[in-house]
């Protein structure tokens, strides 16, 4: 007797919980050949709003943790990514139309990327911070501080390596993130949510919305409680979103051509930090 298929309907990841979309909508996530893989929730404006509330709530605690502790937690996430290697490999193979060998290499690169960013948690300040020379009896010290709540449009094509490469640099410095996933290839993002939910990452630090960035994006871009916008996967909507963001003086990272396999550099981390400079008298 053949077994009945277990057809999955996945949910969003907001504030550490897995709610359905407030709108009740779902859509079909298909594989590279157009066959049904699973149902994904289609996030609406109000899901975006709820995610921002959750991200704001989590920001105080996450940004106040020591960089060392953030690094440890992110490394723990990498361990769990590795533990789900098989599942990620099948999902990447199916959604991106790769062979298992190719998909395995993508998963390896994604885990390595996460580990690489985790390592930066307690090193970034040494590299981009500075003891500035000033002509007076003062110490003048600059250090990077997290920007706040960052809305991220994840890449549409690279569903795991690209996704990891946009989330990790945002949260490693102490920001919290609201991520709108690839519309056509949401499965690896959903599995990543399950990894994050069972890791030590506090709820609300990363919020994952599966759905259409053209629908949710404008509400995030105009939202006054969002501090920055990463438009990597925003596609044609990017220009309008950037204009919306200007109204509330948000920091914006424009889309550009990306090679996800290349060394990422510090750019994605430094974009979403602010430089705090402190003057302190010498000899007191």
């Amino acid at each position: 007797m053949s077994r009945v298929d277990v057809r999955k309907t996945y949910k969003l990841y907001v504030g550490g919980a897995f709610p359905r979309s407030e709108s009740g909508r779902t859509y079909e996530a298909l594989d590279a050949k157009g066959a049904f893989l699973a149902n994904a929730s289609q996030a609406s404006r109000k899901d975006g709003r709820d995610a921002v509330v959750a991200a704001r709530k989590a920001f105080g605690g996450w940004s106040a943790r020591t960089p060392y502790n953030r690094g440890q937690i992110l490394y723990r996430v990498a361990e769990m990514l590795e533990g789900r290697r098989e599942q990620f490999t099948s999902e990447v193979a199916a959604t991106e139309g790769l062979t298992r060998t190719q998909a395995g290499r993508v998963v390896d690169a994604a885990v390595d990327r996460w580990v690489w960013y985790a390592g930066w948690a307690d090193k970034l300040a040494q590299v981009v911070g500075n003891a500035n020379p000033v002509s007076g009896p003062y110490f003048n010290l600059s250090s990077p501080e997290p920007t706040g709540v960052v809305a991220v449009a994840a890449p549409q094509d690279s569903s795991l390596l690209g996704l990891v490469s946009v989330i990790a640099p945002v949260v490693v410095t102490g920001n919290t993130a609201v991520v709108v996933t690839s519309f056509g290839r949401p499965l690896p993002a959903i599995t990543l949510s399950e990894v994050l939910a069972t890791s030590d990452l506090p709820g609300g630090v990363v919020n994952v919305l599966t759905g259409d960035v053209a629908e949710v994006g404008p509400w995030l871009a105009t939202h006054r409680d969002v501090d920055a916008l990463d438009l990597t996967g925003a596609g044609d909507a990017a220009t309008d979103l950037e204009r919306d963001a200007a109204e509330g003086l948000k920091r914006v990272r424009r889309p550009r051509s990306e090679d996800w396999t290349a060394q990422p550099g510090l750019d994605r981390m430094t974009t979403f930090t602010e430089t705090k400079t402190v003057w302190h008298p010498i000899g007191v």
Binding site: T222, H223, R224, D225, E247, G248
Partner: peptide, 9 residues
């Protein structure tokens, strides 16, 4: 205004 506000406002 038509857009979400925040606690900074």
């Amino acid at each position: 205004t038509g857009h979400y506000s925040g606690p900074d406002h």
